[in-house]
Simulated scan of single mutants.
Amino acid sequence: MGAVVKTLGVAADKDTGVAVVTLDRPHRLNAIDLTMRDELIETWRELRFDTTVRAIVLTGAGDRAFCTGLDRDAEVPQPESPYMADDPLLHVGPKSNDLWKPVISAVRGMACGGAFYLLGESDFLVADTTASFFDPHTTYGMVSAYESVLMALSMPHGEAARMALTGSAERLSAERAHSIGLVTELTEPGGALAAAIAVASVIAGHPPEGVQGTVRALWAAKEAALRQGFAQAPHLVSLGNLPLDRQADLFHARRPGFRLR
């Protein structure tokens, strides 16, 4: 059932029409390196053509994290120009790859930083009670630009602002995420994947043309705001990010502990 590649697992159930895509780097808390980035892009684009797949569940391997964003050891070359910046995760999500089949994220453990590129392009989230959400950018001298835009369109503005501005000092609990609508269903520990597959199976049982048109319509409701926000992001990142060596100093000097709310 399915095929496993280096950093990504893909399993499709032809009977239900549901594919499960698994971020499979648990030893790195499912952080996205450039190999995983490329495999995600390839997977989303392949799923566009697989008519047996009518709904997708995205999850992370292991019980510690859904995804912790970009792997800090990933070497991302940048052009030497203030007018050109390459964000390695900008096109890592399903919508960015023109996939209009429903994608449901099943979250267990931490989801932070660059994970929001994936969560922000999911149609909705299911989480278990171990899930937590936070954005460490400001703690390490970085601007949360793309991530904040995506989250501001997925949760109340004040919650998105507080999460982005408090950095790694606070984490949004699964219960709080559920109460504000970021998470649509909360399960017992270990139950998020099964719950996500169950609802994906229901959706996959509907005629796909209507489902995919509805996904496209829902995304259109926030697409203009997303495009406008993203247009500002490269300039804000260029202006506000500390040099990489200073970011590394702050990362290594970080204090353990956080407030869960």
Rank of each mutant, 00 (worst) to 15 (best):
P88L: 06
G120Q: 02
A198M: 00
A111C: 15
T130C: 09
A177L: 07
H235V: 11
D87H: 13
D73K: 02
T68W: 00
F251M: 02
S144V: 05
A220R: 13
T59Q: 04
R108I: 15
V183S: 01
A221S: 15
Y83W: 09
E188D: 14
R259I: 15
S144E: 05
E159T: 15
L70K: 00
L99W: 04
D63K: 09
P102C: 09
L182H: 04
Q247E: 06
A220M: 11
A220K: 13
A231T: 07
L182G: 05
S179T: 05
A3Y: 03
Q212G: 08
R108P: 12
V237M: 12
R28Q: 12
M36N: 09
L250A: 12
I104N: 10
A12T: 15
A233F: 06
R108L: 13
W219K: 09
L47N: 08
T184L: 11
R261K: 00
L150P: 05
I197G: 01
D71Q: 00
P88I: 08
A161Y: 13
L99T: 03
D128Y: 02
H252K: 02
G240H: 01
L153P: 05
P82G: 04
L244Q: 05
S173K: 02
D249E: 13
A225T: 05
A61R: 07
V202F: 13
R64I: 05
T51L: 09
S148R: 14
G210S: 06
T35I: 15
T214L: 14
A3I: 07
P82Q: 00
A85W: 14
A200Q: 04
T166W: 06
S148P: 01
G190R: 00
Y140C: 01
P189N: 03
A65C: 00
K14Q: 12
